[in-house]
Design a protein around this nucleic acid. Structure first.
Lengths: 185, 185
DNA sequence: CCGACACTAGACAGACCTGTCTGGTACTGT
DNA sequence: ACAGTACCAGACAGGTCTGTCTAGTGTCGG
């Protein structure tokens, strides 16, 4: 019955669930320690401060998303964009969805120079570059500005999935993408 | 030199600044009391709990936005949409912009049944209805879905203004709107 | 067999949190 | 003149927060 995952893994798993579901400031270290069945000294051995854990939590979500995207089947560039955004719509419509973890984390960390914000910045640069890559490969006539628009679509889908009727979102993902890619296809 | 604004007004003004700039959980009652130069009993007389203050804060932001939109000059429906979104782009690019207060507040209140979330829901319904209204007036061929898209644009602009280079946003607002309104104009 | 290392259990400090309560002042309308 | 109301000052309670510290256990490579 003993949990055999190493302590650091248990901490990150617990933090991943609690931070996402309840918010970062709302979840105290004591609770993470209790629910991951770890000694306090062990926790502070792996993460010298709560901020370090938060940064690791955000980074892990980034890794997961990058792995998921790398696992998509290889298709034509425009098809890839459709795959990515359709997937996003599905995730946004799933019942466990509580918004984009990066947008939510940023809302709790207003200082743009905070380590957590820097991690988020890197993620956003990566995502934007990916959009630009597919658009350029597809010989889109206006790849830079269109990449900006797809970034807006990404954020809008994430927020809408959290605050509006998520089912309605999946219905408009394709339309949104087609209209923003106007002229191509 | 005495501050002549009534206590409730001072509290709301202080809370408006601090909650928006630093986050809701990050700002304690004691600090709001100190900075608005109010006695603790007075505070709890006007706002029985912090949640009540938070709800009033969000509601006040809504009121301000609705007043600002009502103050726009009257134009053709499509022109109105351009006015609204251009204004949003400008606000998002201003240096004091720290993201959409509603999206940020929602990130700190994950429970959709929380009073603050209900206030936000009302705001979003109002905004969506306004989009639908202008689209219908403009005889857009697909007003419902397009209103959903404009909601996505709204959220995407707000998040982008907070997390990306805000100047870049103003440059794409018009393009975004034109592409999402495809077919009209 | 031993030293290094990851880990456990939990007390403790000091700050900060929300909310209550007491007691007193000043202005306002009647 | 008097009641009501709005306000001020600040102590207090009880909880939670992050982070430190002591002291001991189990395991594993060499």
């Amino acid at each position: 019955m003993a949990d055999t995952r190493p302590a650091r893994r248990r901490i990150l798993d617990t933090a991943g669930i609690l931070f996402y579901a309840e918010g970062i400031r709302a979840v105290g270290i004591d609770r993470i320690i209790a629910e991951s069945a770890v000694a306090k000294a062990t926790f502070y051995h792996h993460f010298p401060s709560k901020d370090d854990l938060v940064a690791a939590y955000v980074q892990e979500r980034i890794d997961q998303q990058q792995v998921a995207i790398a696992a998509l089947p290889e298709r034509e560039p425009l098809e890839m964009l459709h795959l990515i955004f359709t997937k996003m719509g599905e995730i946004g419509a799933s019942p466990s969805f509580r918004g984009c973890p990066f947008i939510n984390a940023a809302a709790e960390h207003p200082n743009p120079a905070h380590p957590v914000r820097l991690v988020i910045d890197r993620y956003r640069s990566w995502f934007h570059a990916m959009m630009l890559h597919y658009l350029t490969e597809a010989r889109h006539p206006d790849p830079e500005r269109t990449a900006d628009l797809l970034m807006i679509l990404r954020d809008g889908l994430a927020v809408g999935g959290q605050l509006d009727n998520p089912a309605a979102l999946t219905a408009v993902v394709d339309v949104a993408l087609d209209r923003l890619l106007v002229g191509v296809r």
